[in-house]
């Protein structure tokens, strides 16, 4: 990593780590990531619809719902005004007039915001793995942990990318937060509705049919949350939704590279 890039990333992490937003976000993250694993590993926990909680991966899979609710929202909250705040205050004009290439500034911004939220999430995930191993008396498979860890960091990255991209388009703070939260809400709360509507229009009956399960799996590739679940399911052989197992990996590469590419190019042409 070049020196200005490294310095800018560390400065951004330092700034965000000790921000009021982070102080408010950390307890929520701790409650959702660590708390959910703690609760789900309780022997008396019974989930509706007979969802199994037999293996450590089952626990991690179910707790991913809480990760999606907290870590992705935290990513949006931390980075929703990454560009628009500086633009509104005029500081962006000062930064863009510096000799430091815009691409370096954009990469530093993306890495800085991602790691600001990615590091606390990583630490909390590691704590939850320890809790998982301790309370279940069964060590989770290393590959399960690695895939859960990477998938979680990736989904946080995707949301940070969308937020920064949205922030680069927003001219004011209210548009910025609206776009960020709206996007989070769509993928987290409304995606099933979107899937159902499109399925209905395509003549696929919503329910437990094989066609529906496959259709839902395909639609999930177009949602970061869906791809996250696909990545976790890759470590769960009992789940088969009828799509080629390579597709979630391809989708995750596209979800990682495409928004980043668009953001970097957008930043190159950004008019403060």
């Amino acid at each position: 990593m070049s020196s200005p890039l490294k310095n800018l990333v560390f400065a951004k992490i330092n700034e965000q780590m000790f921000s009021v937003r982070m102080y408010l976000t950390i307890p929520v993250l701790a409650l959702c990531i660590v708390g959910s694993v703690w609760g789900l590993t309780d022997a008396n926990t019974v989930l509706p619809a007979d969802i199994p909680l037999e293996t450590p991966m089952d626990i991690l899979f179910v707790s991913s719902l809480f990760v999606l609710l907290s870590a992705t929202l935290a990513g949006v909250i931390i980075s929703y005004d990454g560009v628009s705040r500086d633009r509104a205050s005029g500081v962006l004009e000062v930064k863009l007039s510096q000799p430091c290439p815009r691409r370096i500034q954009a990469i530093a911004m993306l890495l800085g915001y991602w790691l600001s939220i990615g590091i606390p999430v990583a630490i909390l995930n590691i704590i939850s793995y320890v809790i998982l191993a301790t309370r279940m008396d069964e060590s989770p498979a290393m590959m399960d942990l690695i895939s859960h860890f990477i998938a979680t960091e990736l989904v946080v990255l995707w949301y940070v990318q969308f937020s920064l991209l949205a922030s680069s388009f927003a001219k004011d703070q209210s548009s910025s937060i609206s776009i960020g939260i709206g996007m989070w809400f769509t993928f987290t709360m409304l995606w099933l509705l979107v899937t159902s509507v499109i399925a209905g229009l395509s003549g696929i009956e919503v329910g437990a049919s094989e066609a529906w399960i496959r259709f839902e799996a395909i639609m999930d590739l177009f949602s970061p949350n869906g791809v996250y679940h696909h990545l976790l399911e890759a470590r769960m052989p009992q789940i088969d939704r009828g799509i080629n197992p390579i597709l979630p990996f391809l989708a995750s590469i596209i979800w990682t590279l495409l928004p980043a590419f668009i953001f970097f190019n957008r930043f190159e042409r950004l008019n403060p």
């Binding site: 020196s3 200005p4 310095n7 800018l8 400065a11 700034e15 509104a88 205050s89 005029g90 500081v91 004009e93 000062v94 930064k95 007039s97 510096q98 000799p99 430091c100 370096i104 500034q105």
Partner: peptide, 28 residues
């Protein structure tokens, strides 16, 4: 060139030193 824009509303809890340091880091 060095640019001083028309109006920059420097704001936030960070110090003057931290703010200028961020710009300084860009150019080493």
């Amino acid at each position: 060139t060095g640019h001083m824009p028309e109006q920059v509303r420097w704001q936030g809890s960070k110090s003057i030193h931290a703010a200028i340091n961020e710009i300084g880091m860009m150019i080493g």
